[in-house]
């Protein structure tokens, strides 16, 4: 299906989805901790916009609620909590240059292509229109995973985790016009609790290894090898 056949609103949804993917790449490459948190907030904002656009396009009022939820949770509350934690742990100036930036970026690109390959078998006409969006959200999820694998700093790992969650939300909103309200509230609740728990863990980890470089958490890894 050609993109010009879609209504303007739907095209705007695609543009914003692409923007979410773009911020994922930016998260992958950003070395400075504070800038990473800001980028994550921008990603949340783009998601909230996607959600409200879909709400307008499909005339489903409960999506406005989830847009509001995303805006307050992903674009404001969680970034603010992370910001506060970083200040309390005195990590404002922390920067961790990415190792092998070219390879990592290429890997990110490969993940995008892989996502498009995954959705190829979906051929039925009424499903094929949303294939693009599913591929993009899968790519956001996988890049979030890549961030968690490549970055060593605990706060950035958590941001990778939360951006995976963003990819899921994108899939739910753009491909299925949002999950039922009870599920959406449940998921938002879980994300919030997870964010709070991560905060607790930062303190435990920095107490036990005096840094947040979680690659140094390796006491148990040796157990199976000895």
């Amino acid at each position: 299906m050609s993109i010009t056949q879609l209504s303007l609103l739907e095209q705007a949804v695609f543009v914003l989805a692409a923007l979410v993917l773009f911020t994922s790449f930016a998260l992958l490459g950003q070395a400075r901790l504070l800038s990473t948190i800001h980028l994550f907030a921008w990603q949340g904002l783009a998601l909230a916009l996607v959600s409200s656009l879909v709400a307008t396009a499909t005339n489903e009022p409960h999506l406005y609620l989830s847009a509001l939820l995303t805006l307050s949770l992903k674009a404001l509350l969680i970034p603010w909590m992370l910001h506060r934690l970083v200040r309390r742990l005195e990590l404002e100036r922390h920067a961790e240059p990415l190792r092998h930036p070219v390879m990592v970026m290429l890997a990110g690109t490969a993940l995008v292509i892989f996502s498009y390959w995954i959705v190829l078998p979906i051929e039925r006409l009424e499903l094929a229109a949303t294939r693009n969006i599913i591929a993009i959200s899968l790519a956001v999820i996988l890049i979030g995973l890549l961030i968690m694998v490549m970055r060593r700093q605990a706060v950035i790992k958590v941001i990778g985790f939360m951006s995976m969650e963003n990819g899921l939300f994108l899939a739910a909103v753009a491909a299925t016009h949002g999950m039922p309200l009870v599920v959406e509230l449940g998921v938002a609740f879980d994300v919030l609790i997870a964010a709070v728990l991560f905060g607790v863990f930062f303190f435990h980890i920095s107490e036990s290894i005096e840094s947040l470089d979680v690659d140094r958490l390796n006491r148990l890894r040796a157990r199976d090898k000895s």
Binding site: K157, M164, L168, I205, E207, S208
Partner: peptide, 21 residues
């Protein structure tokens, strides 16, 4: 135990995110 809990949290969190997809 902090290390074990962190690993549990991250691995199960990632896994369960894929399940949500």
């Amino acid at each position: 135990s902090v290390e074990a809990a962190w690993k549990y949290f991250i691995l199960c969190g990632v896994g369960i995110a894929l399940a949500l997809f």
